[in-house]
Amino acid sequence: MGFKLLSKLLVYLTASIMAIASPLAFSVDSSGEYPTVSEIPVGEVRLYQIADGVWSHIATQSFDGAVYPSNGLIVRDGDELLLIDTAWGAKNTAALLAEIEKQIGLPVTRAVSTHFHDDRVGGVDVLRAAGVATYASPSTRRLAEVEGNEIPTHSLEGLSSSGDAVRFGPVELFYPGAAHSTDNLIVYVPSASVLYGGCAIYELSRTSAGNVADADLAEWPTSIERIQQHYPEAQFVIPGHGLPGGLDLLKHTTNVVKAHTNRSVVE
Rank of each mutant, 00 (worst) to 15 (best):
M1E: 05
G2V: 08
G2F: 11
K4Y: 06
L5M: 11
L5H: 13
S7Q: 11
S7M: 15
V11G: 07
Y12V: 09
L13Q: 08
T14H: 06
T14F: 13
S16I: 15
I17G: 05
M18C: 05
M18G: 05
M18E: 05
A19Q: 11
A19N: 15
I20M: 09
I20D: 07
I20E: 10
A21Q: 07
A21K: 08
S22F: 06
S22R: 09
S22E: 12
L24F: 08
L24I: 10
A25E: 07
F26Y: 08
V28H: 05
V28R: 09
V28W: 12
G32A: 07
G32I: 06
E33K: 12
Y34C: 09
Y34L: 09
P35F: 06
P35A: 07
V37N: 07
V37C: 10
S38M: 13
S38A: 11
S38L: 08
E39H: 13
I40F: 05
V45L: 12
R46A: 14
R46Y: 15
L47Y: 00
L47Q: 03
Y48M: 07
Q49L: 12
I50Q: 05
I50R: 02
I50Y: 06
I50G: 02
I50E: 03
G53N: 07
G53L: 13
G53E: 12
V54C: 06
V54K: 04
W55V: 02
S56E: 12
H57C: 02
I58C: 11
A59D: 06
S62Y: 14
F63W: 09
F63L: 09
D64H: 14
D64S: 07
G65E: 10
G65L: 10
A66Y: 12
V67Y: 07
Y68D: 14
Y68G: 11
P69C: 06
S70K: 02
N71R: 01
G72T: 00
G72Q: 00
G72V: 01
L73Q: 01
V75P: 01
V75C: 05
R76H: 06
R76Q: 06
G78V: 11
G78E: 08
D79M: 14
D79R: 12
E80M: 09
L82A: 12
L82N: 06
L83F: 03
L83H: 00
I84V: 14
D85E: 07
D85P: 00
D85Q: 00
A87N: 04
A87R: 00
G89Q: 03
A90G: 13
T93G: 00
T93S: 11
A95I: 07
A95Y: 15
L96C: 04
L97T: 04
L97A: 01
A98Y: 06
E99Q: 06
I100T: 06
I100Q: 03
E101I: 12
Q103N: 13
Q103F: 15
Q103P: 04
P107Q: 08
V108C: 01
R110Q: 14
A111W: 04
A111D: 03
S113Q: 05
S113M: 10
T114N: 00
H115S: 00
F116P: 01
F116M: 04
D118L: 07
D118W: 07
R120N: 05
R120Q: 03
V121M: 09
V121G: 01
V121N: 02
G122A: 11
G123F: 01
G123I: 02
G123R: 03
V124Y: 03
V124D: 03
D125G: 12
D125L: 14
D125I: 11
D125V: 09
V126I: 11
V126T: 13
L127W: 01
L127T: 01
A129R: 10
A129Q: 15
V132P: 00
A133H: 11
T134A: 05
T134I: 05
T134H: 04
Y135C: 03
A136W: 03
S137A: 12
S137G: 10
S137W: 05
P138I: 15
S139Y: 05
S139T: 14
R141C: 07
R142N: 12
L143F: 11
L143H: 14
L143T: 04
E145T: 12
E145K: 14
V146Y: 15
E147R: 14
E147I: 15
E147W: 12
G148S: 11
G148H: 09
G148T: 10
N149K: 10
I151A: 14
P152K: 03
P152V: 04
T153N: 06
S155I: 15
S155Q: 11
S155T: 15
S155G: 12
L156H: 03
L156E: 03
S160L: 13
S160Q: 14
S160W: 14
S160N: 15
S161I: 15
S161E: 15
G163R: 09
G163Q: 11
A165N: 15
A165G: 09
R167S: 08
F168K: 03
F168Y: 06
P170D: 05
P170I: 13
V171A: 07
E172C: 03
E172T: 13
E172N: 05
E172S: 07
L173W: 00
F174W: 01
F174G: 01
F174D: 00
G177E: 01
A178E: 09
A178T: 06
A179T: 05
H180V: 00
H180I: 00
T182Q: 13
D183N: 04
D183Q: 00
L185Y: 02
I186F: 06
I186K: 00
I186H: 04
V189K: 01
P190E: 06
P190I: 05
S191L: 06
S191V: 07
S191E: 07
A192N: 10
S193I: 04
V194M: 06
V194G: 02
L195G: 00
L195R: 00
L195S: 00
Y196I: 02
Y196N: 01
G197V: 04
G198E: 03
I201W: 02
I201F: 15
I201P: 01
Y202E: 09
L204I: 13
T207W: 09
T207I: 13
S208G: 12
A209R: 11
G210E: 13
A215C: 05
A215T: 11
D216Y: 11
L217H: 07
A218C: 07
E219I: 15
E219T: 11
E219A: 13
P221F: 13
T222N: 10
T222C: 05
T222H: 13
S223C: 03
S223F: 02
S223Q: 03
E225F: 11
R226E: 13
I227F: 04
Q228V: 13
Q229G: 10
Q229R: 13
Q229Y: 11
H230W: 14
H230P: 04
Y231D: 00
E233Y: 11
E233N: 09
E233I: 12
A234Q: 03
A234C: 05
Q235S: 14
V237I: 05
I238F: 14
I238P: 03
P239Q: 01
P239F: 01
G242W: 03
G242L: 03
L243S: 06
P244Y: 10
G246S: 11
L247P: 05
L247C: 13
L247Y: 05
D248H: 14
L249Y: 04
L249M: 06
L249W: 01
L250P: 03
K251N: 07
H252F: 03
T253W: 00
T253M: 01
T253L: 01
T253V: 00
T253K: 00
T254K: 08
T254P: 04
T254G: 11
V256E: 04
V256G: 02
V256S: 05
V257S: 02
A259C: 11
A259S: 12
A259M: 11
H260D: 09
T261A: 06
T261N: 14
R263T: 07
R263K: 11
S264G: 08
S264P: 11
V265S: 10
